[in-house]
């Protein structure tokens, strides 16, 4: 079974089309509504998704781990992390799935930099992303061409091994860290990202560093 996990917080503008697109390529779409105050949950359900609803906003990492929990109970064979804001292309999924299957890897990580057809804000490309890569290196992650890309595919072994403890955005550093820690095999795959908004800014980056530091003492 192929299951897409879509963490969503106030994504009523895009969620229905994202779910419909995903259903063309996967068996189940699980939207984890992370305490939205708009009608994200209703729209997702109406579009055909299974909706898990957090009563409080807990962050993207927490929502993904809730999705992992559900996927483990549902005996999913493959889990796809997919953003709710419409920045990813569901049409990238078949080729990405084919790649992880033929290469027999545990995890596939999306990359904006393996292909050369991306339009990325320059501050993000030349400052925030290199800084993100540096933080990843210092955190002992596997070496990726793209830092903090939300498109991932996890096989069953990875799903049973990767437990996300970072509730907010630091999960994007935690996951490559866990891949390295548990010696999971991985591959990068070029995906298309259409920027509708800027995403993580400098303040967001600093919060990630703070979360990573604090977690060392927990």
């Amino acid at each position: 079974m192929i299951m897409a996990l879509v963490p969503a917080f106030n994504e009523s503008r895009t969620i229905a089309s994202v779910v419909k697109d995903l259903l063309l390529y996967v068996d189940d779409v699980v939207v984890i509504d992370d305490g939205s105050v708009d009608n994200t949950a209703d729209l997702a359900r109406g579009a055909g998704a299974i909706v898990i609803r957090h009563s409080l906003n807990r962050g993207q990492g927490a929502a993904l781990e809730t999705g992992h929990d559900y996927a483990r109970r549902s005996n999913a064979d493959w889990v796809i992390h997919f953003d709710a804001d419409g920045q990813f292309m569901a049409s990238d999924i078949p080729a990405a799935l084919a790649m992880i299957k033929t290469s027999k890897k545990d995890v596939l990580l999306g990359s904006r930099f393996l292909g050369n057809h991306q339009i990325i804000p320059w501050f993000k490309q030349w400052f925030l992303l290199p800084m993100g890569r540096l933080v990843d290196r210092l955190s002992g992650t596997v070496r990726l061409s793209d830092s903090h890309n939300g498109f991932r595919i996890l096989g069953r072994r990875a799903l049973d091994t990767i437990f996300i403890t970072q509730d907010r955005m630091a999960h994007a550093t935690e996951i490559p860290g866990l891949i390295a820690k548990y010696h999971l095999t991985w591959v990068e795959y070029p995906i298309t990202v259409q920027y509708h908004n800027f995403g993580q800014g400098t303040v967001g980056g600093l919060k990630i560093v703070r979360d990573l530091l604090i977690s060392k003492f927990l």
Binding site: I50, S55, T66, R73
Partner: peptide
Amino acid sequence: IVRQEALKTTIPA
């Protein structure tokens, strides 16, 4: 706690 509660009350499509 939020996760436990969410998974308990999930209605599968």
